[in-house]
Simulated assay, not measured.
Amino acid sequence: MNIEEVREYCLSIKGAEECFPFDDTTIVFKVMGKMFAYMGLERQDDGFRVNLKCDPDKAVELREKYESVIPGYHSNKKYWNTIYIDGDMPDSEIKAWIRHSVDEVIKKLPKKKQEEYAAMKNE
């Protein structure tokens, strides 16, 4: 995937919105006001990367399976992974982990907010 494809996929998630709360070069994607992904818009020496929330056990599994997955850069390494989007992880798997990140965010919301999210229509 390239950076624009990651952005488009994140925005295709039900209720997703983007913002720039940190600076002009770090895009943040949220659902229900909670962050599920963020990425720098400027290419680093080692490529573009996206940070995704992850179940702690699965986070470790991903890091062991793919060289392109490392503990979350500038985030809680227990719950966040950094994925180099032009690395060895297939596009379909990146999309699945973006979806997983959204699910992790939603399941931590209060029950009422979870129900509100479930009732939302995909726009």
Rank of each mutant, 00 (worst) to 15 (best):
N2G: 05
N2M: 04
V6R: 03
R7L: 10
K14G: 06
A16R: 00
P21N: 10
D23P: 02
I27P: 10
I27S: 06
V28D: 04
K30H: 02
V31Q: 04
V31G: 01
M35R: 00
M35S: 01
M39R: 04
L41C: 00
D46Y: 15
G47L: 10
L52V: 03
K53T: 02
D55T: 04
D57P: 09
V60L: 15
V60N: 05
R63D: 01
E64I: 03
K65L: 13
E67M: 12
I70E: 09
I70V: 14
G72L: 01
H74M: 08
S75M: 15
N76F: 12
Y79D: 10
N81A: 11
N81Y: 14
N81W: 13
I83T: 07
Y84M: 14
Y84C: 06
D86V: 03
D88K: 11
D88F: 14
E93W: 14
I94Y: 07
K95N: 11
K95T: 04
I98Y: 00
S101N: 10
S101I: 01
V105L: 13
I106S: 03
I106L: 14
K107C: 10
P110R: 15
P110C: 10
K111W: 01
Q114N: 03
A119T: 11
A119G: 09
M120K: 11
N122L: 14
N122Q: 12
N122E: 15
N122G: 09
